[in-house]
Design a protein around this nucleic acid. Structure first.
Lengths: 207, 207
DNA sequence: TGTTCTATAGAACATTCGTTAAATATAAAT
DNA sequence: ATTTATATTTAACGAATGTTCTATAGAACA
């Protein structure tokens, strides 16, 4: 008899335990909380959940259950972005690991992406993308993007980075500001280089 | 002999335990990790830390140490804001507690405020505040605000809510859009009501 | 029908771990 | 010098908790 519902209830109970009390439940907590009848039953389901990769436990360590779905993601704050400067993404080989500044975000905001980093926006050159001086943009490092996505593009001729929505058109590329009242600009495909995809924009006020 | 340094080291060790392993250390973990000599010493310092309000422990519960400085804050997502509608802030007495939608944020983003809630922005009527359709604004429920802060104001005559920077001037109030290219509007003090202070603006792209 | 896999039950064992007590030491305060 | 508050040491108790062993039962399957 397959009983996946029981394990869902157990997972739910574990989540509640973290939310309500701040730490993981014991086997016997789960026993009572889920109306089960024996610690062996709980052990069995926990072993299964661990095989499925949905939780992790350190053997012999009490209250060591960890949910594999992470809640908070720490992204590196790599530097500043400003029109006229390339984005300072470190190449993999020049990966200096100084006391990096990091920003803690939640998966509610960035999902479960990897290759995520954040940049501070300097100057008001992105207002047409509804991005203000001092805002933080969260980027995903991808070399290409789909139509309609907001990307950071390096304009080779102009020697300038800008954030725009990208649309491929026959023979040219349309870069559309997020602000609908503003006109798009058109560039030759050879003139641009996608530096990354904008995943989120954050603005903190009243500091 | 005052020994606050030891307790700082203990706190640091607890933080590391959470970061590295995902759960709190035991008294004996701290003993080894901080090169102390007896469980009683650890108990003593933990009791002091708890009296100081820097940690919390549930008696008899193993690995129940919780750091009081929270990392992630759960804010209620109360509804939508749109020009022409008052903000749906529930009054304290009408505090229905239905299965509220919540948004997990980090203190990196909102600080350690209380009375925080989030609203989804509907429509493009706030573009002059650099806020787009679909953005999320994080608000702090305050009845008043200082000059220069971005606030949600209810314009009684116009029957409309808008987000602007507020400046008190002799005999009138200036409401300045965040977008510097746009003109401010002026209103009579009796015509406005501050609904809350904007703490942060969030925009998720490429969902 | 027999085999196998999964779920459940009850009991007991072995550690881990919070807690306490009593004695000593050390520094600060009076 | 005496008192008082804080810090350390040693040892041990007992509760909390992970783990294991054995037995049973139902379902799927050949």
């Amino acid at each position: 008899m397959r009983k996946p519902e029981v394990r869902e209830r157990i997972l739910e109970f574990i989540r509640h335990s973290f939310d309500d009390r701040g730490y993981a439940p014991t086997v016997r907590d789960i026993l009572k909380g889920c109306n089960l009848s024996s610690t062996s039953v709980v052990q069995h389901h926990l072993n299964t959940l661990e095989k499925e990769g949905r939780i992790h436990r350190d053997p012999q360590v009490v209250r060591s259950i960890q949910l594999m779905k992470k809640d908070v993601v720490e992204v590196p704050l790599l530097g500043a972005i400003a029109a006229g400067k390339p984005i300072p993404v470190p190449s993999s080989d020049t990966w200096t690991t100084p006391p990096e500044e990091t920003l803690k975000l939640t998966t509610d905001m960035v999902g479960n992406k990897s290759n995520i980093y954040a940049l501070k926006v300097k100057g008001t050159s992105m207002v047409d993308a509804l991005i203000d001086d001092g805002d933080t943009v969260v980027m995903e490092a991808v070399p290409t993007a789909e139509d309609g996505q907001m990307v950071a593009v390096w304009l080779k001729d102009e020697q300038e980075v800008t954030l725009k929505k990208i649309y491929r058109e026959p023979g040219r590329i349309r870069l559309q500001p997020a602000n609908k009242q503003m006109k798009p600009i058109y560039v030759k495909p050879q003139n641009i280089e996608v530096q990354g995809k904008v995943v989120a924009v954050l603005r903190r006020l009243s500091r």
